[in-house]
Nucleic acid binder design. Structure first.
Lengths: 91, 91
DNA sequence: TTAACGTTTAACCTAATTGTTAAATGTATT
DNA sequence: AATACATTTAACAATTAGGTTAAACGTTAA
């Protein structure tokens, strides 16, 4: 919901890997967990952080919860970086 | 030096503010400190993190140490984000 | 309604981060 | 050489983050 949340979410390698995995499409929490060596509880919390940053969306389908990427908030980071790289002087 | 370092450095609001300040040009450590309410020691460590991430460069001039922005590593973040935003399926 | 499955939440532990003050370092000035 | 100034480093306290196991929750199936 904010640049702070977004950057904090992206600062963890596991969370970035989760996003990369979701690039190929929506996936259940369990399937995401199977890509890692940490416990499901740990991944679940990473998912919560990503969701709070609005980088992923979830939807329950029966006993599964599917996660999918939401890249729209990445726009803000791009803007922030672009601005930082702009010519010196005009901030 | 790595995407991990860069994103971790950017995940702190004070460090982002330091970068924004340096956008207008090089500045001594003391002048940077004066923009914040935390101690010089604290800012000094933030500067060290930014430097380790290669987001800033320093050079001593007499008793002052000047810091300046180095935006080249931001390219990697842009690339990573662009790739994530790419069409689903081709990772 | 009980059992099984997928997932999250709670409680706990350890490690990392951020801040402070005090000491150390490097440079300039007298 | 002694002092002063700018900055960093060390040592410590408080907070946050990420991992684990165990319990709880929500859904499905028997």
């Amino acid at each position: 919901m904010s640049l702070q949340n977004t950057l904090r979410a992206l600062s963890d390698p596991i969370r970035r890997e989760i996003l990369s995995i979701l690039k190929s499409g929506r996936m259940s929490a369990g399937d995401i967990v199977s890509h890692f060596e940490v416990t499901g509880a740990s991944i679940s919390r990473h998912l919560a952080v990503l969701k709070e940053a609005d980088l992923i969306r979830d939807s329950r389908e029966g006993k599964y919860i599917f996660y999918e990427l939401n890249t729209s908030v990445l726009e803000d980071i791009m803007l922030w970086i672009t601005n930082l790289k702009g010519e010196k002087g005009n901030d």
